[in-house]
Design a protein around this nucleic acid. Structure first.
Lengths: 253, 253
DNA sequence: TCAGCTTTGTGCACACGTTCACAAAAGCCT
DNA sequence: AGGCTTTTGTGAACGTGTGCACAAAGCTGA
């Protein structure tokens, strides 16, 4: 690599691997705990254990940020907290808007973890007039009609979608139209967004299904239902009793 | 996208790659929607679009389950729903216990998505006597003291931890001791478990931090804070405002 | 100053995951 | 029947992520 006006420590050049980015918050959390306990320095071995990864991976991850360790000693806790925070962009304020104040939205509004690390719930929104106006976690729930204005006035940069699945794409479109480029989606739906908009999803149902898969493997209950004969593939009727009947798409609001 | 990750060798003998397993629920959801609309067959292209992946990946994923498609035609929707359900172990019942009935536990207990696909909330548990005895979503909240008995009697196979972070490891240990080998952890902590126990985590704070990282990149606000001089490394005060003051561990319970 | 010990940073090899691109299969039409 | 069209299933190339193992760097003590 040559031309780049790299006024930065080595690697910062072009991009930290995505897998590394996903682990930085883990390291940050472990470091914060150490910081609170007044621990001044930590070795890659110790920090890795606290974060639940192996030490080589941790060292490689940190090396993408720069050479912030001291050989023979370890890493300075406070300094590393700062460097990771800066890299993740947590040294600035991130106003968040939660759209869809049902059970989950309600829980998130009261969620302590939200307020930390630079994230701040700037607005609660809902489309239902029976909900708007209520006070939750010290905030008044606003109506979706005000979305664009709220995003603009409060400089909201991250939208959290906790609506029922059928409403999610519509909400997403409005958020994007209002200028938001980062979305955290709790609705069990695939959102389509234009290039440049980041969507991350948190999907309870999917996590459970993955667990079920492994659980089945473990209990050897694997083939409980005898492998259905490949039979006439074109067969019309669902081979399975009811399973086809299918679920009500989740989120009873 | 939730984080989680179940560490595992992956392609073990007759195994399905972990990345594929994580997508099967997505396909299943898309197929269920098609099924409801009465669509009889679907091409890899269409299904891939509905699931938000590319078609080659989808075909390869499905090929791990077997050859369930018909060239020139596509896949039989009902049949594929069954095959994926069976592979994921959703043709059987999975009783779930939710431990920690704070805001989030409460929301999950009422969460419709839980009930679908073979998952069934079998028990709600809490350590606080002020909470136990309450009825939530038609169920009585039981005390942690009854955990072992409940797991045994109701054949609970999956534990969901929604306690404050400091309590999570203890709860986890008890779940494992009671024989549970699949845990979904919402508490912002790294859980350590013995070999053979699967833990997946859902961590709101981490997801937000990952979004913030990308958001920062996009808005070019990157280097706002000037590179802190390496300075006296042992510096006491956290260079960042309050960041160090780690979060109040979630869930005001 | 120098030997000895600790721990980082990273080159390298390998495992895993994604994408391309195409032959083979299946249905359809004349 | 045979050619044409569609679409699957998969080999192979490529990219990303992981883990080992070790040289280099820094500290400590004599």
């Amino acid at each position: 690599m040559a031309t780049g006006r790299t006024e930065r420590p080595a690697h910062r050049g072009r991009g930290i691997p995505e897998a590394t980015v996903a682990r930085l918050p883990l390291y940050l959390r472990a470091l914060s705990a150490l910081s609170e306990r007044g621990v001044p320095t930590v070795s890659s071995e110790e920090l890795a254990a606290a974060a639940g990864v192996n030490s080589a991976k941790l060292r490689k991850d940190l090396s993408y940020l720069g050479s912030y360790g001291t050989r023979g000693v370890g890493y300075d806790v406070e300094y590393l907290v700062y460097q990771i925070s800066r890299e993740l962009g947590l040294t600035q304020d991130w106003p968040v808007a939660i759209v869809g104040i049902g059970n989950l939205g309600h829980a998130l509004a009261n969620y302590g973890g939200f307020a930390s690390r630079g994230f701040r719930v700037a607005a609660l929104l809902d489309a239902d007039r029976a909900v708007t106006g209520q006070r939750i976690a010290g905030m008044v729930v606003r109506h979706m009609d005000d979305l664009e204005q709220i995003v603009r006035d409060d400089h909201v940069s991250i939208g959290v979608i906790t609506t029922p699945a059928p409403a999610a794409q519509g909400v997403c479109d409005r958020l994007v139209a209002a200028g938001i480029t980062s979305i955290l989606n709790f609705a069990p739906t695939v959102l389509s967004v234009p290039e440049g908009v980041d969507v991350r999803k948190v999907d309870l149902s999917i996590e459970l299904q993955i667990l079920a898969f492994h659980e089945q493997r473990k209990s050897g209950t694997d083939g409980v239902a005898p492998q259905l004969p490949p039979a006439a593939s074109g067969a019309a009727a669902s081979p399975v009793g009811d399973l086809g009947g299918d679920l009500p798409e989740v989120m009873p609001a």
